[in-house]
């Protein structure tokens, strides 16, 4: 199944080897404009490595990644961010010496939109408001709860006004109430028509949020389609539960 509309991000034949280990093997998929795509798979299937290649942490060993025809693979991370890929980290990474507002401004000042001065402050406030945290703007980040830290990180990524947003297990580690808030927040992003790639383990979230899913196992793509399609796929079930149970 191909994406709805023209693809904005294309992944073609991407492979990543670490020494003898093949972490990602010949992955290809597209992400359409305004589309929310989930990347799922068992632990160690190469999802985060795939994200890290899109955002420029690693260079693919083979294959290419392009955005609107522009080649991302091989670019350093900072250039990829400027071209318009924003991301959050699997383990939250905030800037501890900066206030909440300054953390978000970091995204606005250096990201895709490159704003400065009052402009950057305004957009940072807007994004904090967007994730429901504007009241904490002047607080130090050490004063935040876990979900609030995740919110700040999301606001920082949004403040760069990226064309593609990568959320790496953004919902992981939240308790059930927080999870609900979190899913609502991402749902709102979807309603705004943002292009998002999300790596997730929470299946409820996948069902509720994603237009399409790419399923990875042992570094390779084993299925692609709507959440309902892929979650009933025999091979997907086998990848998650093992051979005997299928």
């Amino acid at each position: 199944m191909s994406p709805t509309g023209t693809p904005i991000l294309r992944v073609r034949g991407v492979t990543k080897r670490f020494g003898g280990l093949v972490a990602v093997n010949d992955m290809s998929f597209d992400v359409g404009n305004h589309e929310m795509v989930g990347v799922i798979g068992p632990n160690g299937s190469g999802k985060t490595t795939m994200m890290n290649m899109i955002s420029g942490v690693f260079r693919p060993s083979a294959g290419r990644i392009t955005m609107r025809g522009r080649r991302l693979s091989g670019m350093p991370a900072q250039n990829i961010a400027r071209v318009g890929v924003g991301r959050t980290f699997q383990l939250v990474r905030l800037l501890p010496g900066l206030t909440v507002l300054e953390n978000v401004m970091a995204g606005a000042v250096f990201g895709h939109s490159r704003r400065w001065g009052g402009d950057a402050v305004d957009i940072a406030h807007d994004m904090l408001d967007r994730v429901g945290l504007d009241a904490m703007a002047d607080a130090p980040v050490s004063a935040l709860t876990y979900i609030d830290q995740k919110r700040v990180e999301l606001a920082r990524a949004l403040a760069g006004e990226p064309e593609v947003l990568l959320l790496d297990e953004w919902l992981a580690g939240l308790n059930p109430t927080e999870l609900e808030t979190g899913i609502d927040l991402i749902h709102a992003l979807r309603d705004e028509g943002r292009t998002v790639i999300l790596v997730e383990h929470v299946m409820d979230a996948i069902r509720a949020l994603c237009d399409r899913c790419v399923v990875m196992s042992s570094g390779a793509k084993i299925a692609e389609g709507t959440p309902d399609e892929v979650l009933s796929d025999r091979e997907v079930i086998r990848a998650y539960l093992g051979d005997d149970d299928a």
Partner: peptide, 20 residues
Amino acid sequence: FALRIIGNDETVARHVGINT
């Protein structure tokens, strides 16, 4: 501002688009 971010976390600095 870029230097303050780099001093805090260089990885984040690169990912928000700073040529560290």
